[in-house]
């Protein structure tokens, strides 16, 4: 079952965007947002997931957090597709400022410019940022 964008037919479906802005480790934000997103997938809402600023590092390939005695939850982002979360965005400027490209990322994403992202956020019913 997939949650496709359908703004007209189902008034109960809200447009959610979860915005990740922090590096993956050192704080609990990345993991907590990821868990929240997985849970929200159960409620058949129109979920969007965005990575910007240092949040882009959350989906960078080749993480080895075992040295921090953390489990490698970067693998879990690859499960999002199976949870029906297919609208994943990375802000182009944030990615480029950090010398990264799509090839460095663990999942396929839609790369979106800052201005366009702002407009997309504007179209959401709920935006949660961490």
């Amino acid at each position: 079952m997939s949650v496709e964008s359908d703004n007209s037919a189902e008034p109960k479906v809200k447009r959610f965007m979860y915005v990740n802005r922090k590096a993956p480790h050192g704080t609990v934000y990345a993991l907590e947002v990821l868990e929240m997103v997985l849970i929200s997938a159960m409620f058949e809402q129109d979920v969007h997931l965005t990575f910007l600023d240092d949040g882009v590092f959350q989906i960078k390939k080749g993480q080895n957090p075992s040295v921090l005695e953390m489990k490698d939850f970067s693998k879990t982002y690859r499960a999002l597709d199976g949870y029906g979360i297919e609208k994943v965005f990375v802000e182009k400027e944030s990615m480029e400022e950090r010398g990264l490209s799509q090839d460095d990322l663990i999942i396929p994403v839609e790369i979106i410019g800052r201005e366009e992202l702002g407009a997309l956020m504007e179209s959401m019913d709920v935006v949660l940022s961490a």
Partner: peptide
């Protein structure tokens, strides 16, 4: 593979 236990709906799929 994913470092999580799947939700039932995801498991059945």
């Amino acid at each position: 593979e994913y470092q999580i236990a799947p939700a039932i709906r995801v498991l059945t799929k």
